[in-house]
Design a protein around this nucleic acid. Structure first.
Length: 234
DNA sequence: GTCCAGGGCCGTT
DNA sequence: AACGGCCATGGA
């Protein structure tokens, strides 16, 4: 059996640190700027989209000085659609980015310190009520913008849990609970945040390059643990 | 031309 | 509860 902490060790030794979104807790507030809102917008825009396209949209927002909660909550929806166009599904994504901006503006005076400085479960429930924020987007926001110890499950994680001998029923909540409890039992509290952050990135890297819908098992770092390649050859 | 990327909503079964 | 259609651009 493969356990989450073992999966982390294997992938880390194979891929090394990937350094995705902010790795240290103080990153967001460097030099007076606050990149947490950029992470929130990025989490929505990357829904079923390539990150390179998300970067284009974020760059559009930055160059127009519009990467700001108050500005987006007042922004013309047509203009916002044009700005986020490269990420695909731009009609709904423009709405979704506007919804959460309006929400943060009207309920928290656009103050992310107040928004994030509460019990994790409460923030999560609130996020899930906002149209366009599902479990993965909510958890990405909690982990990568809020620095909360939440593990993000995505389509790759589910696929890998189905193929590898991992003892979990592969639904979102089951996988998340299993990964969080296993990692929490094996590591110190101050390491957990970094590991949740890194493990999600490592899994995406594995899913993108090896454990694809048409997998490349011959060079996969998990080949000797995996049973999927045996299923394929039957 | 085809496939698919760091999902979520909504309607049907 | 689980599944399918839909949303849509851009790079491989």
């Amino acid at each position: 059996m493969i356990t989450p902490h073992l999966l982390y060790e294997i992938l880390l030794s194979h891929f090394g640190n990937l350094n995705w979104w902010p790795k240290d807790i103080d990153y967001h507030k460097k030099e007076g700027s606050d990149s947490r809102f950029e992470v929130i917008v990025g989490a929505i825009l990357t829904q079923n989209a390539a990150w390179t396209n998300v970067e284009k949209a974020l760059e559009n927002l930055k160059s127009k000085k519009l990467l700001d909660i108050e500005k987006i909550s007042k922004l013309d929806i047509k203009l916002l659609q044009k700005i986020v166009r490269p990420t695909g599904f731009f009609n709904q994504k423009a709405k979704r980015v506007k919804y959460i901006s309006e929400y943060l503006e009207s309920n928290y005076s656009a103050d992310l310190d107040i928004f994030f400085n509460r019990a994790v479960n409460r923030i999560r429930e609130e996020l899930l009520k906002i149209n366009g924020i599902g479990p993965e987007t909510a958890d990405s926001i909690l982990l990568y913008a809020g620095n909360k110890p939440i593990f993000v499950v995505d389509a790759y994680t589910k696929r890998i849990c189905k193929r590898l001998p991992i003892d979990v029923n592969p639904t979102y909540d089951n996988i998340q609970y299993y990964f969080q409890s296993d990692i929490s039992n094996k590591y110190n509290k101050n390491e957990i945040l970094k590991i949740f952050n890194e493990l999600h990135a490592l899994i995406v890297n594995l899913g993108k390059n090896y454990c694809k819908s048409k997998p490349k098992c011959d060079t996969c770092p998990l080949q000797k643990y995996c049973m999927y390649i045996k299923q394929l050859s039957q």
